[in-house]
């Protein structure tokens, strides 16, 4: 860290001529930066790092009820590798991540591109309409979708199917339809947010690039493909990264749809398992093991993804 410049911080040392011995003086301007970041550092240490380390430690323990703690080495991890629910949950979140990324990157990008064109009517209105869902509580939205996905003929989505002469489907009880229900709510909720990200990215693209592309004879599609998409790469990487993390940490929507137990694990997620192990089974050790596994998986996936997209290469 650079030594704080006393000129910049507006403090002059004219009191140095004081008769008091120099050694006793506290150099406030050196300490000040640390003090100012201390709220974050302290809360990070207390609320993030400490729980993280104790969770890793706990993942090697059997916590039986409350006071009864036993060191069991790798037994929890052995259980993890044999746990069918873990694989079911992992498969669910991978599928969920795949579908949300497949939809929630190209679609918002396209929408943002359209919204960014000149001469589109009601721009502000549409931007808000797309953005509003994220302001709702995921639990309340989940409840509404739960009723909409009711297996009854009168459920909203079954009514829709009926128009096409299909259905009714028991949405929340089948593996594929349950995934569909989860992806629909994610798309509804996050489309607007991702669109805003891409919009901000688009506004950072210099119009001159488009102008010179036009002069070279590029059509709209070529401009989109060869100018917009490459220029949006940093934003795309960001959206992809947070989408992957959001996918792996999926919980609220699943919990609202099914609670902690979904029939044949159609909606079980990794966080559902963590929650269930801790709070409905009192198995804190195993719960921490699942948490550590989730951490490792997310780190590996994100590392691979950023590497593959050449994120580190650019900075080197």
């Amino acid at each position: 860290m650079q030594k704080p410049n006393s000129e910049v911080s507006g403090v002059t040392n004219h009191e140095d001529a004081d008769s008091r011995p120099k050694v006793r003086r506290i150099k406030w301007d050196r300490i000040a930066p640390y003090l100012f970041v201390s709220p974050f550092i302290i809360s990070f240490l207390v609320f993030s790092l400490y729980p993280f380390i104790s969770a890793v430690i706990m993942s090697f323990q059997q916590v039986n009820g409350f006071s009864d703690v036993k060191w069991i080495g790798l037994a929890n991890y052995q259980q993890l590798f044999k746990d069918g629910d873990f694989y079911a949950a992992l498969w669910n979140v991978v599928r969920y991540g795949f579908w949300t990324i497949l939809i929630l990157i190209p679609l918002p990008m396209l929408l943002a591109y359209i919204m960014n064109q000149k001469g589109i009517p009601f721009k502000g209105f549409f931007r808000s309409v797309y953005f509003v869902p994220v302001l709702t509580s995921s639990v309340i939205a989940g409840l509404i979708f739960k009723y909409a996905f009711s297996g009854e003929k009168s459920g909203v989505f079954n009514e829709l199917l009926h128009v096409f002469g299909a259905g009714p489907l028991d949405w929340l009880n089948g593996s594929h339809t349950a995934m569909f229900a989860l992806v629909v709510i994610a798309v509804w909720r996050w489309l607007g947010v991702n669109m805003i990200y891409f919009l901000s990215g688009l506004q950072g693209i210099s119009p001159e690039l488009y102008e010179s592309a036009s002069m070279d004879g590029a059509n709209s599609f070529q401009k989109f493909w060869y100018v917009t998409i490459p220029m949006l790469k940093p934003i795309t990487i960001y959206v992809l990264t947070i989408s992957i993390m959001a996918g792996f940490s999926l919980f609220n929507e699943s919990y609202v749809y099914w609670g902690a137990q979904s029939p044949n694990n159609v909606g079980t997620t990794l966080v559902t398992l963590i929650y269930k192990a801790a709070f409905s089974q009192g198995n804190f050790g195993y719960s921490c093991t699942l948490g550590v596994a989730l951490f490792v998986i997310v780190v590996v996936v994100n590392a691979v993804q950023t590497k593959a997209m050449g994120l580190f290469k650019d900075e080197a």
């Binding site: 409350f66 006071s67 089974q281």
Partner: peptide
């Protein structure tokens, strides 16, 4: 609160399904 040993109330309503977890230890708290 029971796990950490502080912050619990004096009295608590515990539903039967949760009671199994609360009473899991050999000497429940």
């Amino acid at each position: 609160a029971m796990q950490s040993g502080s912050g619990a109330p004096d009295l608590a309503d515990v539903e039967l399904g949760q009671a199994a977890t609360q009473l899991k230890a050999d000497k429940p708290p």
